[in-house]
């Protein structure tokens, strides 16, 4: 796959390295130091950092401004953008705003329903869906056009990503859905957190058989478990999450004070196994409010040092 944007993530992937990405959630306030501090913890161990967009529908500092703070400190951001809160005017406007700051990566999502967050009585927009947002960014970038047909002066140069969940039911459409996102124009995928490795490998094999791993870079999502309680919560409460009983049992099998360490070890072992699987282009390490563990995970998984890119 040839490089189409100035994205560091794209360059690393195109050079054949397994990429490492991570993410930071912005604060419930306006202090930029919160986001900078999270970024400082991980900046040397990851290639780019996603900034979530009002995740779980809880109002926070916006992704765009948070990305700008990363950019200013020399960390390359991935702008997450959900279709829940903005119509096509605002989406395109924010894409241009991001482009004006030379933000070169975007992750197109629909976003959790607002009923989960702090504005449950609010409206949702969903003027576009996530696939249509992918198409929109590609149109703006590749054709230099707005959805309305007008020309864009200095079009955005963004490497376009999306999410995929190999675990959600119905399984039979998981690879067709990936194919659909590729047809929409997606260039990289960050997956849902992987705990059921067999299922993930089955999904990836099916994608490989259809030639999809030649068309898109798939970054395997991993999240270290902090405790057996978190494992159970993820298993039972988070939609679309597949945490096998063995993983819960393994966490439960160590004393409470050792569980965090065990969770990190499971995460490292997951990466080590998946590194060898054809079609895994890299890893998305989501250490939720536990960013300080990212360096250890990346080092123990043998993904450090990170490649230097111009």
């Amino acid at each position: 796959m040839s490089v189409k944007t100035p994205s560091k993530l794209e360059k690393i992937l195109a050079a054949g390295h397994q990429a490492v990405t991570s993410e930071c959630g912005p604060p419930r306030g306006s202090d930029p130091e919160v986001i900078r501090e999270k970024a400082r913890l991980i900046r040397d161990h990851v290639d780019v950092v996603n900034i979530t967009d009002n995740q779980t529908s809880v109002t926070r500092m916006c992704s765009l401004a948070s990305c700008f703070h990363l950019k200013q400190m020399g960390v390359e951001p991935v702008l997450q953008m959900v279709t829940r809160d903005r119509n096509r005017i605002a989406l395109q406007g924010d894409i241009l705003g991001a482009a004006s700051m030379d933000i070169h990566n975007i992750l197109c999502l629909s976003g959790d329903h607002q009923s989960f967050g702090d504005c449950a009585t609010g409206q949702n927009v969903h003027d576009l869906d996530s696939m249509q947002l992918i198409q929109t960014v590609r149109l703006m970038r590749d054709e230099g056009k707005f959805l309305g047909g007008g020309d864009i002066s200095r079009p955005p140069e963004m490497f376009v990503g999306a999410a995929a969940n190999p675990f959600a039911q119905p399984h039979k459409i998981r690879v067709p859905r990936l194919a659909k996102k590729i047809a929409a124009g997606v260039e990289f995928i960050q997956t849902q957190c992987i705990y059921n490795l067999d299922r993930f490998e089955e999904w990836l094999a099916e994608a490989r058989d259809r030639g999809l791993t030649e068309k898109v870079y798939i970054l395997a999502g991993v999240t270290p478990l902090k405790s057996v309680g978190m494992a159970k919560y993820m298993k039972n409460r988070v939609p679309g999450m597949d945490v096998p009983d063995e993983v819960v049992a393994r966490m439960a099998g160590v004393p409470k004070e050792k569980q965090a360490e065990e969770g990190v070890t499971i995460c490292v072992e997951t990466i080590q196994r998946l590194k060898e699987v054809p079609g895994v282009a890299g890893f998305h390490v989501m250490a939720i409010e536990w960013e300080e563990k990212v360096p250890e995970i990346v080092e123990r998984a043998g993904l450090y040092p990170r490649p230097a890119m111009p």
Binding site: H113, N124, D129, S130, A163, A168, A184, P239
Partner: peptide
């Protein structure tokens, strides 16, 4: 979410 290319990740 009235998504026209679903299901979303919450299904």
């Amino acid at each position: 979410k009235r998504v026209l290319n679903g299901p979303c990740g919450g299904s």
